[in-house]
């Protein structure tokens, strides 16, 4: 028998969010853990650039690598590269002490765009998102009310937010409320 199981991200966005909030398509996501002293050699061996400081991001083609802790990276990539990456990690298993865990379906990604994007995040997130303190390219974990988020600034007026799957509808409702209010202003 051959089956094609339908993927669902567990969250539906209201029409009124069009152009302001979009749900990102399925992504390949890995939690990658490696000690900082092994970072450079690891990068050389596998060709995946790892940022060297918490809060930094490296983008190569579809690939984004966020450094969120002293030895912790979130790697987001094209789902078609799943096998390629898996093999790459397997080959390195004997050479380096590191850990990879597939979290592709753990997270849901939102893209927030437009002049109101930072303000929309600030309805629930206490971080200062001015360009001076949160420049383009910065990433960090933080909170959005009761949800933990990963926040990344793509552009001056574009952010990517990641949260765990079961928190995504809750966040979407916040965005909807915000857009309803701000349409009427």
């Amino acid at each position: 028998m051959s089956y094609k199981l339908k993927s669902d991200q567990g969250v539906i966005l209201a029409d009124l969010l069009a152009g302001q909030v979009t749900l990102m398509a399925d992504q390949l996501r890995y939690s990658l853990r490696i000690k900082s002293q092994d970072r450079t050699a690891f990068t050389k061996a596998c060709g995946i650039d790892l940022p060297n400081k918490i809060g930094q991001t490296i983008i190569q083609n579809d690939r984004m690598v966020f450094c969120v802790g002293p030895d912790e990276y979130i790697l987001i990539d094209n789902p078609n590269l799943r096998e390629t990456l898996k093999q790459k990690f397997e080959q390195l298993a004997d050479k380096f002490v590191f850990s990879t865990t597939d979290i592709s379906h753990r997270n849901i990604g939102f893209k927030l765009s437009g002049k109101q994007a930072a303000r929309m995040i600030n309805i629930g997130c206490p971080l200062d998102l001015s360009l001076e303190t949160f420049p383009v390219g910065k990433c960090t974990r933080s909170v959005f009310e009761s949800a933990e988020i990963l926040i990344f600034r793509n552009k001056e007026d574009e952010f990517q937010l990641e949260t765990w799957r079961s928190f995504a509808p809750y966040m979407a409702r916040y965005f909807e409320k915000f857009c309803l209010e701000n349409e009427s202003l």
């Binding site: 939690s31 853990r33 030895d71 002490v97 850990s99 865990t101 597939d102 979290i103 592709s104 379906h105 753990r106 997270n107 765990w164 799957r165 079961s166």
Partner: peptide
């Protein structure tokens, strides 16, 4: 100890 932990509650 060389060990890392990742929450996968919502991965599966």
């Amino acid at each position: 100890l060389d060990v890392w932990l990742t929450s996968t509650t919502e991965q599966w």
